[in-house]
Design a protein around this nucleic acid. Sequence first.
DNA 1: AACAGCCCCTGGGTGC
DNA 2: TGCACCCAGGGGCTGT
Length: 263
Amino acid sequence: MPELPEVETYISAVKPHLIGRRIEQIEVFWGRTLSDPNSLVGDLPGRTINSITRRGKYMRFDLGNSFELAVHLGMSGRVDYVDNIEVHKHERARVQLIDGGVFRFIDPRKFGRLHLIKQPEAFFSRLGPEPLDGELTAEWLSRCFHKRKRAIKPLLMDQALVAGIGNIYADEALHRAAILPTRPGGTLTMSELERLVDAIRHVLLKAIEYGGSSIDSAYLGGQMQDEFVVYQRTNEPCHGCGTPIERIVLNQRSAHYCPSCQR
DNA sequence: AACAGCCCCTGGGTGC
DNA sequence: TGCACCCAGGGGCTGT
């Protein structure tokens, strides 16, 4: 379940191997991995990877002349760089580099996508502000949530309102901000929104520091899962007050919270 | 416009 | 050991 911190961690891991490298070709082993199958694959050979950055949950590979490869890991995706030529069981695509080495996209559940794009500004414009750039403010959230009846948690996970937050860090941030996940967005006070912005930054930065979380598999090596305060801690005592953590289903997704600390 | 619900996928876990 | 079933969730889509 890669969210912002996991994407950041993957970027740190592959960056040293890929910056300045030239692409020989791309191979796709599962067709729907490419968001647009007709697209631009032929434009890749010979391109240089100039930079790798993150926007929301996307990895952005700048290939020059505003041509980009955008990678979304979906829920089970990961990327790595290897020397060998063996194809992994769940490998959906790979980028072969000139002078050797392979950038692999591995994704058992096939929710991840590779996007080849020529107008990155348009592609990324639908995303909300970056939580770690100071772009995300309580004033922005206040405008977004004004008069909205939808629960705060699905609003936080709406990538058009804030970019990069998924199920895990929404739960963690709401607990830290002492706000129930079910609270209608429009009912949050300004001071609650300020708490929420601080909490989002805190949990994301901490997760990056810990190298992300690897709930479903050991691939990431991150330790953040040991630091979760509510996520997947159903019936375990709240660290704040000892009350058992509750789990409910909110918009088809599990939500974990402390019924005593969060209001 | 806002929002709920469905769907895509498959590995891992559980119960029998 | 095998089998049927359920669950996890990001985001695009549909229906209300």
